[in-house]
Amino acid sequence: MYREYIILSRGGQGGVTASRILASAATYEGRWAQAIPEFGAERRGAIVRSYLRVSDGIIKRHSKIYRADGLSIFSSKILSLIDIKREIPNDLTLIVNSPYKPDLEGFKEIYYVDATSIALKHDLVLAGWPIVNTAMASAMAKVFNIASIDNIVKAIEEYFSGEIAIKNISAAMEAWDMVAR
């Protein structure tokens, strides 16, 4: 098994941390994983790409990802800002942070989860922004079969502690249940 995923998020939404949480969770599954952020001149609000590789064996390559098995979009507005099919030309499964299923052509499957509402419900707000990364990571783990919810929880505990960890775990568990096709 060898899979590649791309996360498109806004700077400040936690896309980089989401890919790292997923890499940790996949490692708990006994797999090999690699989380690569793409940093540039990005600032808060800019579109940021993060990459995730998951494999049964050691991953030697470190290049960026161009043709992903799955794509996760943390802000549905990104869909109207860039031409996804031009950016990532191959057939792939999409997960979008959205309260409803987006009307899009040309994807293998489309999943959606209202990660923004989940983040707001669990008071995951930083500097006025809902932080959707743990909810989106959990939805990705389920849809792409990257890791179990138990291992997502363990991975979240590596990155957050105390009350913040509890809020993030609650959001992750809710997203796990709510993600739909």
């Binding site: 890919s19 790292r20 890499a23 940790s24 490692t27 090999w32 994983a33 690699q34 989380a35 690569i36 952020p37 940093f39 991953i59 470190h62």
Partner: peptide, 8 residues
């Protein structure tokens, strides 16, 4: 490529 990439 290495400084910011997470790996086991």
């Amino acid at each position: 490529i290495l400084s910011h990439t997470a790996e086991p």
